[in-house]
Write a protein that binds this DNA or RNA. Structure first.
Length: 204
DNA sequence: TGAAGGATTTGT
DNA sequence: CAAATCCTTCAC
């Protein structure tokens, strides 16, 4: 017997500009279901937006095989390999035909991920502090590209808890908006957001 | 068909 | 600051 998760974020939620979805994603939970059925959850604490007309966006020049999923409907994964070593996870956003995405840059995990040997275990708060590191922890590679973000898939999102939402509204928790990291173009666009003072953010 | 370089991370 | 490492993208 299977039930659709009432708390999963629906595709329509992603059908907005990446500059809106990116800050809205902070505080949501990224859920990973491994092939063996184990579930891992992490709070999204850092994101970046990539949008049409943005020279740093992979889809800036034209549609290619790699970036094609960004041109498609929202609510799917866009995973790419970076520097031949790591992977990065994006959420495809905005309307079908509008190439844009939100890069997930850091997660605050609630448990150590399975399947990884830590000879010298780092702090739990730093294990998913960075886009490449969170993909290692979540075992995300290109086989998870172009997957719907919904229960039954390897990855999906759950909304902010009422408590966290209230903390944001009351100012007990805040978002910091600043410029993106590691770029050579579009360096001045303030399209990076993170949960202020979170110990799991990649860089401050 | 070849060459340059990248939305990173770690260690020197 | 340089290395690791590979594949995408663009130029010839």
């Amino acid at each position: 017997m299977t039930f659709s998760s009432p708390s999963a974020i629906p595709p329509t939620w992603f059908a907005r500009p990446s500059t809106i979805v990116a800050p809205d994603s902070i505080g949501c939970t990224l859920v990973r279901e491994f092939p063996d059925g184990r579930i891992l959850r992490g709070l999204i604490v850092e994101t970046e937006a990539y949008a049409p007309g943005d020279p740093a966006c992979h889809a800036y020049r034209r549609r290619t095989q790699r970036n094609s999923v960004m041109f498609g409907p929202p609510g799917k994964t866009y995973v790419y390999r970076i520097y031949g070593i790591y992977h990065c996870l994006n959420l495809v956003t905005d309307l079908d035909g509008v190439p844009s995405a939100v890069l997930i840059r850091a997660l605050q995990l609630d448990a150590f991920p399975p399947g990884i040997d830590f000879t010298t275990p780092p702090k739990l708060q730093r294990i998913a502090a960075g886009p490449g590191k969170l993909c290692l922890a979540y075992q995300i590679d290109q086989s998870l590209n172009d997957r719907p973000l919904q229960p039954g898939s390897p990855l999906w999102l759950e909304p902010r808890t009422a408590d966290l939402q209230q903390q944001l509204e009351s100012g007990a928790l805040e978002l910091t908006q600043t410029t993106r990291i590691g770029l050579t173009q579009g360096v001045d666009l303030p399209w990076r957001w993170y949960l202020t003072n979170s110990p799991a953010v990649s860089k401050r």
